[in-house]
Amino acid sequence: MARFGMVIDTRKCVGCMDCVIACKTENDVPDGHCRDWIGQRLQGTMPDLRLTITSERCNHCDRPPCVTCCPTGASHVHDFGKVVLVDHDKCIGCKACLAACPYDARFVHPDGYADKCTFCIHRVEKGLAPACVSVCPTHSMYFGDLDDPDSEVSRLIASRRHFVLKPDAGTQPRIFYLE
């Protein structure tokens, strides 16, 4: 069974938002909303500064509180790749999952359902990379099966120093950032 995850190389990423814009067009994300976004973290004082740029989205957590809190089962872990998805027709828009996500990865779609990154499952099932991954001009993003030790993502995680966001929130996120 595949377990999809992402690896993002913060050394190469320039924070250009191409991933954000590609997601918008690919997935018809409504104006004023976004499924992915860029975080910048600047530490130090001039000139000894350190900037960490992170392209962020739903982490498709291994322990997703957004799924456990959902009263209808709309939020669920999909068989294919253990991707966390929302079934729009089951969602009542109670927003518990928005509150449950430590990453604030979800939003309410103007049509009334909770929405977020799908890992572009509609592309992945066709053998394509997620839209954000496929456009990144710096090739900073990698996508694949974390359970396959030979996958590029697994190899990158094994070979490079990395971090995840808010590890102590306990959700076991599946997006890994290379330092």
Binding site: M1, A2, H78, D79, F80, G81, I121, V124, E125, K126, G127, A129, Y142, F143, G144, D145, D148, D150, S151, E152, V153, S154, R155
Partner: peptide
């Protein structure tokens, strides 16, 4: 590229 195993590819069809 994504390093899928053959098993995952098969599931892709089911997906």
């Amino acid at each position: 590229i994504a390093g899928f195993s053959a098993g995952a590819a098969a599931i892709a069809g089911g997906g």
